[in-house]
Deep mutational scan, measured.
Amino acid sequence: MAAGGDHGSPDSYRSPLASRYASPEMCFVFSDRYKFRTWRQLWLWLAEAEQTLGLPITDEQIQEMKSNLENIDFKMAAEEEKRLRHDVMAHVHTFGHCCPKAAGIIHLGATSCYVGDNTDLIILRNALDLLLPKLARVISRLADFAKERASLPTLGFTHFQPAQLTTVGKRCCLWIQDLCMDLQNLKRVRDDLRFRGVKGTTGTQASFLQLFEGDDHKVEQLDKMVTEKAGFKRAFIITGQTYTRKVDIEVLSVLASLGASVHKICTDIRLLANLKEMEEPFEKQQIGSSAMPYKRNPMRSERCCSLARHLMTLVMDPLQTASVQWFERTLDDSANRRICLAEAFLTADTILNTLQNISEGLVVYPKVIERRIRQELPFMATENIIMAMVKAGGSRQDCHEKIRVLSQQAASVVKQEGGDNDLIERIQVDAYFSPIHSQLDHLLDPSSFTGRASQQVQRFLEEEVYPLLKPYESVMKVKAELCL
């Protein structure tokens, strides 16, 4: 049975990233139509530049190519590739079939990587351009969430054990800070992308030097003109047959890092959902379990974690691919890159769409948070109580021993009897502590235990987050809708 299948058929496997999760716009960027249309555009740009620099290419040939950029006979191309065992030459023939007058000058002087690699770089750039505003929107939604809850005390956790208090907004800023680093890295790697350009079979530009009869300047002009037509500021000066596969490492490393950030955020949300302090959106008709109707599973956060793990592992592909590119190139890269580049971007696209949807509907339960604080705060307040007693004339050592005994009794009630923490009640009825009984409410005010959390939130948002989001103001209103 021949390899390949009808990918629109229910009898043929289709990647869930495309069929179930990723956005239509990201799927289109990695589609065959987008790819092969870009090949034709690159052939047109090459012909236009070659004509401008004096090669015998007519206006009629150029116009014929322009008129057929979208006229792609995919069936013919597939048949040609089956016959020739070469995808680029299959599309040269297919393009030439609908451009008979231009057929002889299509791909003039070029090698397969002229269309293959340059198209990949265009796709990487455009895919990054799709991700950047999506990530900015996630940051914006979380920034709104953090600002609104900047002063809401909550129990902090280290080692997932109760620690000092923080605020809900401050905790959210930990998430935002990681995503801001990801946004900066995505922008950097996007701006650092260079075009492969017009380089020939081993990167020496020998074929173009021959076409222009040894004119170095025209060869350099050709490279520059096509690079500018493709919208790049610069091209690699040095290439082998391909652009260095280190570029793929750079791009997928940034995406993998984004995956790590999203995994951490969504894990926190899942843990908070278990504590009943916070939940992701839950639709009115949504079913959490087929057997347990009360369940409210954090399905979206779980999906993000599941896909983020996949995204983090994909960076190993370009690392290994770059390491086995012998001399000017081997074909070890080809099949692998067809999979890992598309999957990385479709996965990143999915987790950003999902995280935006989550961040637009996060639900906080202040009463649950308050109750958990009441359970733990008495123990945390013991040092403040000791200091207040010393100020009232008591002995630190005597007070410490009193607190120690009462704390152990209260802990026994919590752990052995399943009761509430009654340390404060014990202190309130103990005559030894009568000098500070009137101060206990103040000493137990949760806001006095959150330090500068709310001020940190305000400063972080104003100095770091809002300036970073400013270039994306025009796209901030787009909502994230999930079908599944």
Rank of each mutant, 00 (worst) to 15 (best):
Q456G: 08
L55K: 12
E376F: 12
Q241F: 00
E81S: 09
I287W: 01
Q286G: 02
I385L: 13
L331T: 00
A230S: 02
D191T: 09
G8S: 14
L444A: 04
V315P: 06
T450P: 00
T167N: 03
D191P: 05
S31E: 05
Q63R: 02
I105R: 14
D11Y: 05
L272G: 15
V429H: 08
Q184I: 14
D215I: 11
L423V: 05
T202W: 01
A78H: 04
Q428G: 15
Y466P: 12
S31V: 11
H217M: 05
L132A: 09
H437W: 13
F212M: 11
E50R: 01
L319F: 02
F433K: 03
P281M: 15
S257H: 09
G104N: 12
L17T: 07
R196L: 11
K170C: 08
N336K: 06
R309A: 09
V368D: 02
A392W: 15
I62F: 06
A308I: 02
P293N: 01
F208C: 11
R194P: 14
H400C: 05
H86M: 02
L331V: 09
A146D: 06
F95P: 00
T347S: 14
L69H: 07
E228V: 05
A78P: 12
P56N: 07
D32Y: 09
G4P: 13
S334C: 09
Q161R: 06
C98Y: 15
A230P: 00
A256V: 05
F36W: 11
Y13C: 13
L311H: 02
P467T: 12
M292Y: 00
G361V: 09
S447D: 10
D117F: 03
G156N: 03
I385V: 11
I351A: 06
G393W: 05
G116K: 01
I287E: 02
I122Y: 07
C27Q: 08
K391N: 08
D192R: 14
T94F: 02
K170E: 04
P153L: 02
D248G: 03
R329V: 02
P366W: 14
I122N: 07
K276H: 10
C180E: 03
L352S: 05
T167I: 03
Y432P: 04
L55E: 08
L482H: 13
V465L: 12
H442C: 05
I269R: 01
R141P: 07
Y294F: 04
F36V: 12
W45Q: 09
M1I: 06
E464L: 08
K66I: 11
M299R: 01
L183H: 15
Q51H: 10
E250Q: 15
A103V: 10
L179P: 07
V315L: 11
D120E: 09
V368H: 03
Y466C: 13
K66H: 12
F95A: 12
Q285H: 04
Y21V: 02
V429C: 10
W39Q: 13
R141G: 14
A18G: 14
I249N: 08
P133F: 10
P10Y: 13
P467Y: 07
Q458Y: 15
V429M: 13
R452T: 12
S31M: 02
F157H: 11
A381D: 02
Q177R: 09
K170L: 09
Q63K: 11
A90C: 04
H91P: 01
N297K: 02
Y34Q: 01
L179N: 05
A2D: 12
M26C: 13
Q456V: 10
E376W: 03
L468G: 10
K264V: 02
D332S: 00
